[in-house]
Design a binder for these strands. Structure first.
Length: 259
DNA sequence: CTTTTTCCCTGGACGC
DNA sequence: TGCGTCCAGGGAAAAA
């Protein structure tokens, strides 16, 4: 989404911002956020963990969190929650079926400290290593999957990618985090990277109606090894994929080859 | 302190 | 067909 938004938004000035869903800017007043955004010129479109970061020439930044069903679209959209009207006449629409998404406007000196506090290392960057995981997981009795879902441990990893990553690594999602050995942690690092790289390559998974800003659907769902495959044979060992609940989330894994 | 549970929200799937 | 219930999941908040 960031990659498609970048050429559309960078260099453009927000002429008018319309926020239709008052929950979007919680806890702030949607009218004042819309008024503050109008006139801002987009300097860059970045991503940090699960946050989309629209940085403005003023130094301010809008942090957009899509949660489950949020997304930008060019062209018409159902479940419309906000519209950005640009100085070149185009409209960029924001839709969100379940209304979990958030928009929050930050002052110049506040945005980076906030992002740093919310997010650990980027899994596709250099800071996400077996050594880092070992430090963060040491002594923890919570399931390893729960730690992978902690954004301060691995920025951007969500439920589906955690399951996929642990399948690649051959590690059982309910294992006590502190009991996962150093060799396995290296496998987990590789698994997380592999799952996320594949997801980006395939432009995400379209489970219901997710689409990129240009309307194209993702194809990551065709690459799932465990997610949504409960009862089907494991692609590595043939044992039926199991589904359970770990860290409060639906969790798919292979009882045969994830230990 | 760590870990687990609840809640927010909508709509699709499913049972009766 | 219509209604009730469950499930999906990110993360804040509350509970344990």
């Amino acid at each position: 989404m960031r990659r498609q938004l970048e050429p559309v938004l960078v260099g453009r000035t927000l002429r008018r911002v319309e926020i239709l869903d008052g929950r979007l800017t919680r806890p702030h007043d949607p009218r004042s956020v819309a008024a503050e955004l109008a006139g801002e010129r987009v300097a860059s479109v970045e991503r940090r963990g699960k946050y989309l970061v629209l940085r403005f020439a003023s130094g301010r930044a809008l942090l957009v969190h899509l949660r489950m069903t949020g997304g930008f679209r060019r062209g018409e959209a159902s479940h419309l929650r906000a519209t950005l009207r640009l100085d070149d006449g185009t409209d960029v629409r924001f839709r969100d079926v379940r209304r979990f998404a958030t928009w929050r406007l930050f002052e110049p000196d506040e945005v980076d400290p906030y992002l740093a506090g919310q997010n650990g290392p980027e899994p596709l960057g250099t800071g996400f290593t077996a050594r880092w995981l070992a430090a963060r997981l040491a002594g923890r009795r919570a399931p390893v999957k729960a730690l992978l879902l902690d954004q301060r441990v691995a920025a951007g990893v969500g439920n589906i990618y955690a399951d996929e990553a642990l399948w690649y690594a051959g590690v059982h999602p309910a294992r006590a985090a502190g009991a996962v050995g150093p060799g396995e942690l290296a496998d987990v690092v590789r698994g997380v990277r592999r799952a996320l790289r594949l997801g980006i390559e395939r432009q995400g998974a379209t489970l219901r109606d997710y689409a990129a800003p240009n309307g194209e659907r993702g194809s990551m769902q065709d690459e799932f090894r465990v997610y949504g495959r409960a009862g089907e044979p494991c692609l590595r060992c043939g044992v039926p994929i199991a589904k359970t609940r770990v860290a409060g989330r639906g969790t798919c894994y292979c009882p045969g080859c994830q230990r």
